[in-house]
Write a protein that binds this DNA or RNA. Structure first.
Length: 267
DNA sequence: AGAATTACCTGAGCGC
DNA sequence: TGCGCTCAGGTAATTC
């Protein structure tokens, strides 16, 4: 589920509602995630104030007055801000009860998410340190892609889904960006010329920008604020008509992930 | 070094 | 209705 736009939309919607609030109590219901939720959170967090929310790739960072709570939503995770008395449901993993009586609640059925506490700088934590440039940073451009692609022998789709190449791109936006760029997902990344790398970087930014403008694609603070999912051009539409040429969209697998593309528009 | 494979989980949807 | 199978938005550890 959550790729960059979903995590960023969560951050943008949640931040103004929780900034400056004090954490009163932590409730851990289902500690089992990709990494177990640290039990110490129940003692470490109460009394701390939420100072700002940041995002790095698909990680959400809750900076407190001292230390940082790092959350990854995995495949199926989402966060809601609820009234204190909202009844917990299955797969609600943990709650941060805030000083205004609201609860930040993490829900993740498939349990691929991560919650961890970092005392120092979360950006140098092992899980975040190796992440590539943010798609909206100046460092992410065609020339950068050319230089990294030179050493790689993989498909362009796997390449842009590699978090060490660029942050925040998962299966959905990889499919969408390649469609927008007119590049076949199964092309070897080394075969892209400079013009195509420029176009790819621009297309990645464009699909993310459109999704952010629409409020992303998923249950992002949905119950609190409503949401209007973006329409995908190719993802989930195999066998249907290409929105550009009307031809039939084709499904394939790339690195064991489902891939959809238009064989007429993408070369 | 980099690519491919495996593993971690639950739930929805499909064919029989 | 129910069973078994496949697939689903992520990614790190392991193997080759």
């Amino acid at each position: 589920m959550p790729e960059l736009p979903e995590v960023e939309t969560t951050r943008r919607r949640l931040e103004p509602l929780v900034l400056g609030k004090r954490i009163v109590r932590v409730t851990i219901r289902v500690p089992k995630l990709r990494l177990p939720i640290p039990q110490e959170l129940t003692e470490l967090l109460p009394g701390r104030t939420l100072e700002r929310l940041e995002r790095r790739g698909k990680y959400l960072l809750f900076f407190c007055d001292k230390g940082c709570l790092v959350v990854h939503l995995g495949m199926t995770g989402f966060i809601r801000l609820l009234p204190q008395d909202a009844r917990p449901e299955p797969h609600d993993h943990f709650d941060l009860l805030l000083s205004d009586g609201k609860v930040i609640r993490l829900h993740d059925p498939r349990r691929f998410g991560i919650v961890l506490w970092v005392d120092g700088d979360p950006y140098s934590h092992q899980l975040l340190a190796g992440i590539g440039p943010e798609p909206f940073s100046e460092a992410f451009n065609g020339a950068y892609l050319v230089s990294v692609a030179r050493r790689r022998k993989t498909t362009v789709k796997q390449f842009i889904m590699d978090a060490t190449v660029v942050a925040g791109i998962g299966n959905i936006y990889a499919n969408e960006a390649l469609f927008l760029a007119g590049i076949r997902p199964d092309r070897l990344v080394g075969s892209l010329d400079a013009r195509e790398c420029d176009l790819l970087a621009e297309s990645v930014r464009e699909v993310l920008t459109r999704s952010l403008a629409a409020g992303s694609s998923w249950r992002v603070m949905a119950e609190t604020l409503g949401y209007y999912p973006v329409q995908f051009k190719v993802y989930g539409r195999s066998g249907k008509g290409c929105p550009v040429c009307g031809g039939v969209l084709e499904a394939s697998r790339t690195g064991n992930r489902s891939t959809v593309f238009c064989p007429r528009c993408q070369h």
